[in-house]
Amino acid sequence: MSPIFSPVHGIHTAAGRYLRRVAYEDAPPARSGEATSAARHVWQIAFGLAVRRRFEPDSPLAEIRRTVTAVLQHHAAAALPALAAEMLIRDALGETVPVDEIDDAVRSGAHLLLFAGLVEELAMTDGELEGLVMEAEELAVEVIAEAVRDQPAASAASLSFT
């Protein structure tokens, strides 16, 4: 296991902590544009986990649209494209949908904001949210370890979004 993931209980990465702060509306998701690829990967996995908890693969599109609309209205300043956001959710549900050519910053912004919206809709407790983020971190560990191998001098702090 990567040294980043010590056996200490709780969220281990700055990316995970940032994700939790976004879910608590305690951090500006606009900073997602500065994220590392490892951090983006954690967010993408967490987003996928939340999507699959909230929706079934055959959930009505209108239900998905309601979630997207609510999130985009709540975060109008982020100006996320509605259809791209919807497609990211459907992609996470396993549908074949057009998700190419979505800018990294837009993609991560959507992952973060939709994740926060889904956590809100699911009325997750602090413990459930922490468990979800930790699960995403564990699933992302190979990618993060790869990033560490590619940058051996980098400290754990470099895995944050800053």
């Binding site: 494209p81 791209a84 459907r90 074949t96 949908v97 057009p98 190419d100 050519e101």
Partner: peptide
């Protein structure tokens, strides 16, 4: 409504246009 997505994909593929990105959306 998901039929729209499938229809667009088929149409763009038939026209030899990129079917997985911005144009399809």
């Amino acid at each position: 409504p998901r039929d729209v997505t499938a229809y667009v994909r088929d149409l763009l593929e038939y026209q030899s246009l990129p079917a997985g990105g911005q144009l399809a959306r």
